[in-house]
Structure formats: C-alpha cells, structure tokens
Design a protein around this nucleic acid. Sequence first.
DNA 1: TCACATTGACACATCGGTGTCTCATTTTCA
DNA 2: TGAAAATGAGACACCGATGTGTCAATGTGA
Lengths: 201, 201
Amino acid sequence: MANLLGVTTEPESGVRTRTRQAIVSAAIAEWARDFAAPLNAIAERADVSRSTLHRYFVDRQSLVDAALREAQEVLDNQSAAAVSGCGSAREELESLMRVLVDFGDILIFLFADPNRFAGNAEWIEAEDEMLPEIIRRAQAEGAVADDVEPSWVVGVYYSICYVAASAIAADELSRLRSADVAVRTFFHGVAASPTTRPDTH
Amino acid sequence: MANLLGVTTEPESGVRTRTRQAIVSAAIAEWARDFAAPLNAIAERADVSRSTLHRYFVDRQSLVDAALREAQEVLDNQSAAAVSGCGSAREELESLMRVLVDFGDILIFLFADPNRFAGNAEWIEAEDEMLPEIIRRAQAEGAVADDVEPSWVVGVYYSICYVAASAIAADELSRLRSADVAVRTFFHGVAASPTTRPDTH
DNA sequence: TCACATTGACACATCGGTGTCTCATTTTCA
DNA sequence: TGAAAATGAGACACCGATGTGTCAATGTGA
C-alpha cells in the first residue's frame, strides 16, 4: 500500500478495495432500512467479521462518513449523466427523477431523515444546488408553475421519488411503472386529465 | 382510583391523568423528531423525572403503545370530523389533507417510518381503510384519475402531507400556505396550469 | 516454498440506555 | 392541619452496542 517514499497509493482493484467496497455498500443498504442498525448487521450483510469491519473503519462515524461520501458520489455521477444531453429543464427533471427512483436505496439512505447527516462535514448540498437551479429554469420555461415556492417543489420532487422507490422496494409497482407514474404525478398530480395531455412529448 | 368494589375508574381529570397525558404528548413530539430518542429526553420534555415516567409506563414498549394509541385516536377523531359534511370525495380528500397537515407532529410520528410499528398489536389500519375508500369514490367521481393505482395515490397523499408538515416545522411555509399548496400539488402537480383552474369549487 | 497480508474467532473493557428500588420531599385533598 | 398521593433524586444491576486487543488460520504473490 505504500511505496518506497512512503506515499500511499490508491489501487483501483485488490483485496482491500473490494472488501472496503462491500462494507460500504452493505452499510448503505442496511442503513437505508434502519439507520439504527448495529455494525454487526452491516458486517454480516457484507460477509465479513466485525473485526474486519473495524480494521477498515475505526469507528461507526467513519463508516457513516464513507457511506455518505459514496452515496453522494454515485448519485452525483448518475445525476450528471442523466441531465446531460437534455433539451429542456422539463426533460432534465424527468430524466433525473427516473435516475433517483432507480437508485432508491441510496436515495432513501440519503434523504429518509432530514437531519440524519446534519452537521456532517462530508455532507454536500450538491443536489440541493443543482435541483433548485433546474427548477428555476423550468419555471422560466413555463414547465413548472412560477407561483409556487421552489423549496416546496424540491420537497415534493424528492418526496415523490421516495414514494416511488418505496413502492418498488415493497413490490407494489414495477420499476418502469413506478418511474412513469412518479413523473406524471409530479407534473400533473393525481387528478384525472380533463383532456388527453399531449405535453409528455 | 379504585372504588369499594375494586373496579378501577378512569377519571377525565386529576393529577395522574394530566401527568400521563404530558408524557404521552412529549413522547409523540420527541419521537416524531427521532424515534431513537431515549426516555430521558421524553421525561425532560414532559417536565417529569425519569422515575415518574417509569411509574406510569413500566417499560419503553408500553409507552410506545400508549403514544401510538393516542396518536391514532386523535387523528381518527379529527379525520372523521373533517370528512363529515363534505359533499364529494374530492372535498373529503381536501378537508382531510388540511387536517393531516395541521397535525404534522402526529402524522410524522405515525408515518415517518413505514415499519416503525410493524407487528404492533395497537396498530390499526383505520386510516389505511378510510383513505383508499375515499380515493375509490374520488376515482368514480372523476376527481382522481382511474388509470393510477390506488396504493400509489395513498402513498403520494401521505407523502405530500408529510412534506407540508415538514415545511411548517422548518418555518419555510405558513400553515395556511402549506395546506393550500399541498392540496393544489396533490391534484394538479407542480406544472403551470394551462388555463385557470376553476375546479377548486 | 516462504514471507507477508488478510481474515475470523475470541476475550475484554467501556459506554449509554433501561428497568428496579429506596428514601426524602412536595403536593393534593378531605 | 394531617394523611395519602405523587414526585424527584439517586443508587444499582443489566444489557446491547462499541471499540481494542491478541492469536491462530487462511490467502496471496514473489
């Protein structure tokens, strides 16, 4: 792990990297269900002993930080990819929502409890920066009502993603159907359409 | 507390009743914020010692049960009152939503975590019975789209109430504004209205 | 094959929350 | 005012989760 100069390197593969990744993934999945889950449960899910877990993460907090960083990175990358190549803010909102619904575990882990990561240095408001910006553009485009507070729109946006992810996790709706109905509900609510809406382009 | 026959009575007022009520209310409020909050925090919020709390509730579970029962009872009563006297399912949904938003603490306590009370004997699906029934009628009326799964509508309904209650708790929106925008969003989403909607009766 | 890295299985101390108990003090009410 | 009820303060044992350490077994790569 350290060369002759004592500089630690970061190999992309290798035993340690794989083990570490397994633990972080297990933490996200387990804590998405129940943030109070003990390290025991995470070690079990990652198929390692609690000893090994403690070798990689000295204490619970450092694993929380790592999981938070990982979850944000995955979501950031996926979000950026989803948004790129869209022709309008309306399209960006839809594309982004489909990604968020698809990564439900991470979404739930990150946003289930608003003050779960309050005061955590790792916490980045990257998405909370990007989303309001898209929404403002969508309002300028006329795709989103401009007489509604952006903070409200953000809340509803995440909330609907959350419900959709939960519906998938509970096997109530398929992934595709869940994403479709989520997008529809976000823009048009649950009211019956007075006419066939042709604006789904 | 017990008459000559040894039959325990349930006084509407009295020291014990007041103390008990204070503890249960504190539990709902505290656990709405964080369900892992220790009994310590509840006792403090209720302005009693932990000794007293344990005199009223032998263990944590019995306090959880009492809080759950109380929360459901309040919400049931308020919901029934809200729904009565409505002319249509559409009105019932709106009236009920305004109540739920207004009792945000209780709503959050009850529905923040889907499996918080899983397996609890006290848990009643009273609301989960009433709401789908109203929604089915709303679909029959044409006020809610009938090509959307009722389970999805229920999820979105609670979710939007939850966001509205959170917005109030975070001082982002006023109680009135929050309820208004919640109702609007539930039925029509966040898209700009193509025409002025006259269907708010 | 051999040296080293990695791991699992324990043992152990620690810590915070829980539940029980006692006793002195305060409050309530007849 | 006086007895009973209610409370607060604290001591105590208990338990599960956490964090540290050791040691033997297994895996890995030169």
